[in-house]
Design a protein around this nucleic acid. Sequence first.
DNA 1: GTTTTAGATTGGTACTACCAATTTTTAACG
DNA 2: CGTTAAAAATTGGTAGTACCAATCTAAAAC
Lengths: 241, 241
Amino acid sequence: MGDLNSHEKSYTKVINYIKGLIREEKLLIGGKLPAERELSEILGVSRNSVREAIRTLDIMGVISSQHGAGNFLIGNFENNLIESLSMMFLLNQIDYKQISQLRRALEMEALMLAIDNITEEEIQVLRKIISQLEKETEANNVVLDKQMHYNIALASKNTLIINILQALSEVLDKFIVDLRREILSQQDTRQVLMEAHTGMVESLILRDKTLAYESINKHFGVIDLKLSQGSEEQEKMNALN
Amino acid sequence: MGDLNSHEKSYTKVINYIKGLIREEKLLIGGKLPAERELSEILGVSRNSVREAIRTLDIMGVISSQHGAGNFLIGNFENNLIESLSMMFLLNQIDYKQISQLRRALEMEALMLAIDNITEEEIQVLRKIISQLEKETEANNVVLDKQMHYNIALASKNTLIINILQALSEVLDKFIVDLRREILSQQDTRQVLMEAHTGMVESLILRDKTLAYESINKHFGVIDLKLSQGSEEQEKMNALN
DNA sequence: GTTTTAGATTGGTACTACCAATTTTTAACG
DNA sequence: CGTTAAAAATTGGTAGTACCAATCTAAAAC
């Protein structure tokens, strides 16, 4: 009767072939894919179709195309997440509030996991950041703030959560720089955030999940409040490229 | 001097153009994109490049290509998430435990948000599911189980979290069907899960976040336990296509 | 042995041609 | 006039060829 799967699109065939190479460990991370012309010949499809497949894997963060050198297997899913989130913004399918809620969920879990998995060295790093944060007055807080959150995420040892949090951080950077600055500049909110941050680190030191829970909620309570005030910052999302 | 941005790849130009159409609301969800040959002419790039761009937007879930009809703007990011997660599995960058932890984070947040946002009708639906779940003995539990989690997610009103949870559910379906069945088949664990489920719904009825917290932890405590026992189910991920 | 240079390899882009699914238009019919 | 059927135009899917540009490899020059 012939091939029932004849409706499989060409570029899908290419992607599946590459997945096969990965599964059979003929292609390892860092490794080079067969040349486009070669794939074209092997699979009996046009180079067009090969390139469409390559491009999607590229965007997904699976491979990296290097002009003149070749296509290489990597594994950077962060850019993909960032692009997807940006698109969701653009299509008005999500807003700050939803992202903030997602972030709270992940920060909460990361902190809980970190309590179980953090090392002494990692705690020392956080202690240093907190003490610097206490000295700072305003500007550089953004950097230190991000460092602290990132280091807590790292201590969770969950790369999936780490990746998503990083992506969220970058998307937020793109769209709400002003809002972030505003939040950090106000004296009263800065105070609460500082307490929350201190509580988070303290919860890691004491392995206290109740304190962790409260600190995260305190942290995002402030942000949610500011979000609902500065409501229509939605406009600023149009700054993306 | 010429064009300093001459290094912008062609397919990027196309994607940016389409983003522009969306931003300027010349292209709405459900709307049809300019034909590929038309885009090719407008932007002065080859149809190849246009198609590479279209394909990536397709994979990202931004557009849907329909042979003979056209390319249409949609907004299904779920497939993209599923594909990305599958790829992460394939590249051994994540494992069940990490996914399970991510899921707990989102289920927790979803439940908390649902407590604030759930309607009476939604509560009735969950009540019905729970009562059915109590009657069932084994097999169909999987369906009801998923329905319950999905309906709680819906009640959160956060589409981002809903999407990710759906994606996680599908990925888990692909890779750990056996494990899921195993968990649900054992009498003792079924008992604990049933208590957890009841607790979750109860927390919604009573608007009790403490009960919510405990119920989610009870729920995933069982799963984590089984995960660490049936440890090397990792193999089964190779069942993907 | 090192540097330079020339060739080969490989991704990036364009153009043309044709197939396949769908839509639109036209024609035929009642 | 309305309905149905057939033909034409539109549009995505695929193939093939050609050439450019970046990189790598190997030969040649020093």
